[in-house]
Amino acid sequence: TEVDLHLGDITIKLKDVSEEIVKRAKELFKNGWSAEFVKKWIEEAVK
């Protein structure tokens, strides 16, 4: 499945990412993480 994760003005296309990771990524962004950091976190999380 593909998900578009909207973080501010940046959209990250996610492939084969669990709902849990998407939820967590949104929380991290809301908590002040930059979109770049969230993207890196996701990449690490799906390895």
Rank of each mutant, 00 (worst) to 15 (best):
W33S: 11
A35W: 11
K15V: 15
E2P: 08
E27T: 05
T11P: 03
V46F: 08
D4I: 15
W41F: 09
K13I: 12
E2C: 10
V38T: 03
E27Q: 09
K47I: 10
F37S: 15
W41V: 01
T11H: 10
G8A: 05
R24G: 09
V38K: 00
E44H: 14
E44P: 00
F37Y: 15
V46D: 03
V3R: 08
S18G: 10
K47A: 14
V3H: 11
A25F: 02
S34R: 04
W41Q: 00
K23E: 14
S34Y: 04
K40T: 12
E19R: 08
E27D: 12
K47W: 02
K30P: 01
V22G: 02
E43I: 08
E43W: 06
V46H: 06
V22H: 04
I21S: 01
N31C: 13
A35P: 12
K39G: 09
H6K: 13
E19M: 12
G8L: 05
E20W: 10
V38A: 01
S34P: 13
V3G: 08
E43K: 05
T1C: 09
G8T: 03
I42W: 01
K30M: 12
E19L: 12
A35C: 08
I12R: 03
K40V: 09
V22E: 03
K26H: 11
V46N: 06
D9C: 07
E27M: 05
A45M: 15
K15E: 08
I21D: 02
I12P: 02
K26S: 08
V38Q: 00
K26C: 11
F37N: 14
K15M: 14
S34V: 05
V17E: 01
K40I: 15
V17I: 09
K23R: 12
L28S: 01
S34N: 11
A25K: 00
L28N: 02
D16Y: 07
D9A: 11
A35H: 07
D4W: 06
V3N: 09
V38P: 00
K30Y: 08
L5T: 02
K47T: 12
W41N: 00
K15Y: 13
F29C: 03
V38H: 00
A25Y: 01
V38I: 14
I10A: 07
I10W: 05
K30D: 15
D4N: 12
E44L: 11
V46K: 08
D16A: 07
L28T: 00
L14S: 02
